[in-house]
């Protein structure tokens, strides 16, 4: 029983949390893919930027969270999301739109987004340094230990407040996104433009407005993902290095341009990562008396050592590109 609780703590909770973060990032990437048709390499740093904005707001009003009984950074999230969305629109207008209007190839836009990512990194390091920070300034991280009503389970299920918030936020975000895309005029216009941009223009759809909306959604989800990730772990200026590959993998696994696919892909990649670094030997422990003397069980049995965690999204990416380049939900390959 204790082993199962351990599995829940290490795999279920961790997988849900990682998956939620990846899903929120991947939705943004996939929407930019769908509407603007390029791989937005600056997405990871958009997340970092959003998290730093949330951190700055938290530092400015360290006790705001106490009013709601929530972490201050979480209370500051709406403001951070709005600011990041505005910044994303500004970045688009400065760096991507001129190239689009010139009729540049998508790959040139990819390059421009790399330029943007390096600029964001430079600025963050200049103004915030390279150290790791905690998002909890005037508070402590709440940790819940849930006891199970079984005799056999002496271990407790452990879940922290940020982890609960991440999962809840992702669920709310997914539902709102679904509502937006299927019920609102702008949401439908977004889907239309993703389907057939020429026809959207012919129909008189305001393509500028759709582009702005795309950046609002992508930017605010990036800020949310970045902030929630930093709440769960810590705020690092080089966060984007470890997150860019998984969110691209998630977007491609789900089918490029398919928001629901990106959500599914996010959880798939998240759980794959967690399961591959999980020490499976622990689940075999109860069987040790049975197998004693027959086979020697190793104490550590994981698919991938933690240092190589980044290979997991890469292997998934390669597998998808080889066997099903359209992804699970049949995305746009061209």
């Amino acid at each position: 029983m204790n082993e199962i609780v351990f599995f829940i703590n290490k795999v279920l909770v961790a997988g849900l949390v990682t998956g939620s973060i990846y899903a929120m990032g991947a939705v943004g990437v996939t929407l930019v893919f769908a509407i603007l048709r390029f791989a937005h390499f600056a997405h990871g740093d958009l997340m970092t930027l959003g998290a730093f904005i949330a951190f700055a707001l938290t530092a400015a009003f360290p006790h705001a969270g106490a009013i709601f009984g929530l972490p201050t950074a979480f209370v500051m999230l709406p403001a951070a999301m709005a600011l990041t969305a505005l910044l994303a629109i500004w970045i688009d207008g400065r760096f991507y739109r001129p190239l689009r209007e010139r009729g540049a190839k998508p790959v040139v836009l990819v390059m421009a987004s790399v330029g943007v990512t390096l600029m964001i990194q430079g600025l963050l390091r200049l103004f915030a340094g390279t150290g790791t920070r905690s998002m909890f300034i005037a508070e402590r991280k709440d940790i819940f230990r849930i006891e199970l009503p079984f005799e056999l389970a002496r271990r407790k299920i452990v879940i922290t407040e940020p982890q609960i918030l991440v999962i809840l936020f992702a669920v709310v975000a997914a539902i709102s996104l679904h509502w937006f895309l299927t019920r609102t005029r702008t949401g439908k216009a977004m889907r239309a433009m993703s389907d057939n941009p020429d026809l959207a223009r012919l129909s008189g759809i305001d393509t500028q407005q759709v582009v702005r909306t795309t950046w609002i959604i992508a930017g605010s989800l990036a800020a949310a993902a970045g902030t929630l990730l930093s709440l769960d772990v810590a705020l690092k200026p080089d966060m984007s290095f470890n997150i860019l590959l998984p969110i691209f993998a998630a977007a491609i696994v789900g089918g490029v341009g398919q928001p629901y696919g990106a959500i599914a892909g996010g959880f798939l990649v998240g759980f794959a990562e967690v399961l591959s670094v999980f020490n499976w030997a622990i689940l075999l422990r109860p069987f040790r008396p049975l197998l004693d003397g027959v086979v020697e069980l190793p104490t550590h049995l994981a698919f991938v050592p933690t240092e190589y965690k980044l290979t997991v999204p890469f292997v998934i990416l390669v597998a998808v590109l080889v066997w099903r380049p359209t992804g699970i939900f049949r995305g746009k390959v061209i």
């Binding site: 005029r185 439908k188 889907r191 239309a192 389907d195 057939n196 020429d198 026809l199 012919l202 008189g204």
Partner: peptide
């Protein structure tokens, strides 16, 4: 209004949504 020769619908949108997009303006 203009109806192109090919690729003249939004394939993943429903028929009703296609009509709504026509009325976008």
């Amino acid at each position: 209004s203009f109806v192109p020769q090919e690729k003249n619908v939004f394939p993943s949108l429903t028929v009703l949504e296609n009509l709504e997009m026509g009325a976008f303006v």
